[in-house]
Nucleic acid binder design. Structure first.
Lengths: 183, 183
DNA sequence: CACAACTTACTACTCTGTAAGTAACTTTGT
DNA sequence: ACAAAGTTACTTACAGAGTAGTAAGTTGTG
């Protein structure tokens, strides 16, 4: 994750990864078969540990999910390395024949579904007819978090990741629950 | 732009670029000196042509800028190649020693300033005290546009770039002009 | 005649993946 | 209890492909 984040998948050599765990690159290949496979295992492993972190804790739904996303942004401001890995790999994954492409497609589908369901739960709770904007809003919330990460990594002094994320999430949630025309 | 967009800067070989213009890779290096320099010239060239496109037309400010951004998102949905180049290169630029890093830092600074000024103009026009949220909102608008592009490139059937961008921009503008607490 | 726009040929490097070998550890048969 | 056999976790060495950049030569042009 460190090497792929710092240098990208394509420019992140196996030798550097191997060095970090005190091995030769052939040793890494012995365990993972290929570099592609290693990347997929790294992503799978992070998935698993994220799930484990949330075990025991109740997985938040409804309005609590949005508060959880704001807290995640706050937390991410202290995890530049991890954030960079996701930023670099997700964008790289749209290139031709990238090994993580399917993984990111699936990831965004899952996340959009979860955020969409939170929106629907909140709407139901408040007796609001489910607006057509729910799906757009779900994609937008993920998008704004990702996009702010890029700007923050490039210019941490000028971009406040946590505050901007909180602001944008609030704006989007408000617009779903009670839409207004500004333009 | 085509090669760097489709394969990334690191994995985009000079030979492929040269082939596209009917040359050998040494011919390209004759003109640009190095691959790094070529990338910078490509980015500089696009800047210049974008400026030329807008010449004659009035550069929109105030509320018109936000409408212009929505139209740009609509236009971008028909320019996947160009969008992909920006998505890939901007994310790649956060990696160690990337030649386009400074260019993207500067680009986002400029764009945030322009969007921020549009917000201030609209606030002044409507007699609203300039809210503290203007800078966050400016970053958020650029962020949501970029982030939606990633999701759209990965899954064009599931993500409507134009509609989602329009929705999110409207949400953010509304929240600046007349903030509400949703969370 | 000078110079610009190339090409060919080559160097030097990086990188993934493979093959063969080695040392330690585990299992199994008696 | 213990040795033979197999297995795991590597290393070293190498093959093979790809790639940026350079140097020297070629052709056309003002």
């Amino acid at each position: 994750m460190t090497t792929f984040g710092a240098r990208g998948y394509n420019k992140g050599p196996l030798t550097e990864i191997a060095e970090q765990v005190g091995m030769t690159h052939a040793g890494v290949l012995h365990h993972f078969g290929s570099k592609d496979q290693l990347l997929l295992e790294v992503l799978r492993y992070r998935d698993e540990s994220d799930v484990k972190d949330l075990e025991g804790q109740h997985i938040p739904g409804g309005i609590e999910l949005f508060r959880h996303l704001v807290r995640t942004a706050l937390l991410n401001a202290r995890r530049a390395g991890l954030v960079q890995a996701y930023v670099v790999l997700s964008a790289e994954s749209v290139t031709e024949g990238h090994p993580a492409r399917d993984w990111f497609v699936e990831r965004y589908r899952t996340l959009r579904r979860e955020v969409g369901e939170a929106f629907r739960a909140v709407c139901a709770e408040r007796g609001i007819d489910e607006p057509a904007t729910v799906d757009r809003a779900a994609a937008s919330i993920l998008a704004v978090m990702d996009g702010l990460q890029v700007q923050w990594l490039l210019d941490p002094e000028q971009v406040d990741l946590a505050e901007s994320s909180a602001f944008a999430i609030e704006a989007i949630v408000a617009q779903v629950l009670d839409p207004r025309e500004a333009l």
